[in-house]
């Protein structure tokens, strides 16, 4: 072992341009730290998942408070899935509906206006673009009160449509897509114009397919942030039936404050599915966040 380390160290001194951590003790230290970080990151998840399999009796008894369950019990899950006041399927549908409709409207408008801002000139274009970008600096908490009052006037509170109405346009999305759209060569668009295509055809048939990858990345981000959204749905959706998953989680937990196992099982059912989606698509998600600086 020591020999190996020594030879490794010798190896690295031979290469003058070696990466910073390229000798054995340093490398081992590096990985120990990184794995420790992973454990810290994962412990809350594992603790929650394990707790969801513990019975109420096991959790409240000081003698049996261990990290791992003494016996795996599906009691909590059975209680939740058989609870008639908690039709989980409906809440999944609500969340999906909101997330998907926001993805559709925002990716479409971002692509469209990214294209318009990148490829066309018109009066007040700079003023308009400046305004859109500056809305990113305005905290949502400032406009949420009048926005709610507008929804009241529209009679759209307790309505999933009301949740989508204020997010047709995303300043981030327009800004991001403009960058992509400006890389599309003008010759391509002009060629299509000469062939007699109208502008909508050019946008839908030529421009959109070219930016599909960027749009998909952006769409995943929009999906996740809307799926996890809490404050605005909490304000708009007072009626239990139309609520989304995060609100349902707090609502359910408030009714079962004493039963932690039940709460954790609800968290697992409500929070974890999106994590599976993330793990499957993680390359796109991470790249998207790094690319856009969009906060979830």
């Amino acid at each position: 072992m020591a020999q190996q380390a020594a030879s490794l160290a010798a190896d690295t001194t031979a290469q003058t341009a070696a990466p910073a951590w390229n000798n054995a003790p340093r490398r081992i230290g590096l990985y120990v730290l990184l794995f420790a970080g992973c454990i810290i990151t994962l412990v809350p998840f594992i603790w929650t998942i394990l707790a969801s399999f513990k019975t109420h009796a096991e959790i409240i008894n000081p003698a049996t408070q261990t990290f791992f369950p003494n016996e795996f019990s599906f009691e909590n899950y059975q209680t939740i899935l058989n609870d008639p006041t908690l039709p989980l399927g409906r809440f999944y549908l609500n969340s999906t509906y909101i997330a998907v409709s926001n993805v559709i409207t925002q990716t479409f408008t971002s692509a469209l206006f990214g294209y318009v801002f990148a490829k066309f000139n018109f009066r007040f274009k700079r003023v308009l673009f400046w305004y859109i970008i500056s809305t990113m600096m305005i905290p949502f908490q400032l406009t949420m009160i009048p926005s709610y009052l507008i929804l009241l006037k529209f009679n759209l509170t307790d309505n999933l449509l009301g949740l989508v109405a204020f997010s047709w346009f995303s300043a981030f999305g327009i800004f991001l897509m403009r960058q992509f759209m400006s890389t599309i060569p003008d010759e391509l668009l002009d060629a299509a114009r000469v062939d007699g295509a109208n502008e909508w055809q050019i946008f839908l048939r030529i421009v959109l397919p070219q930016t599909l990858a960027a749009l998909a990345t952006y769409g995943v981000l929009v999906f996740i942030s809307n799926w996890n959204a809490y404050l605005w749905p909490l304000i708009v959706l007072r009626d239990v039936d139309v609520r989304t998953l995060p609100i349902i989680l707090t609502w359910y937990n408030d009714r079962h404050t004493a039963n932690l196992g039940l709460q954790m099982a609800a968290s697992v059912l409500i929070v974890m599915p999106i994590l599976l989606v993330y793990i499957v698509m993680n390359r796109w998600v991470v790249r998207g966040f790094a690319l856009t600086g969009l906060k979830g």
Binding site: L34, G37, C38, T41, L42, P44, F45, W47, T48, A51, I224, W227, N228, Y230, L245, P246, I247, L249, T250, N253, L260, Q263, M264, S267, I270, V271, I274, L275, Y278, I279, N282, V285, V286, F289, G296
Partner: peptide, 23 residues
Amino acid sequence: FRTIYFLPVVTSSVGVAVMWGYI
């Protein structure tokens, strides 16, 4: 590492609050 470290970011903050509330 990147995948694992990023996991909490995509978790709903309500879920995070429930999990840490228990911890």
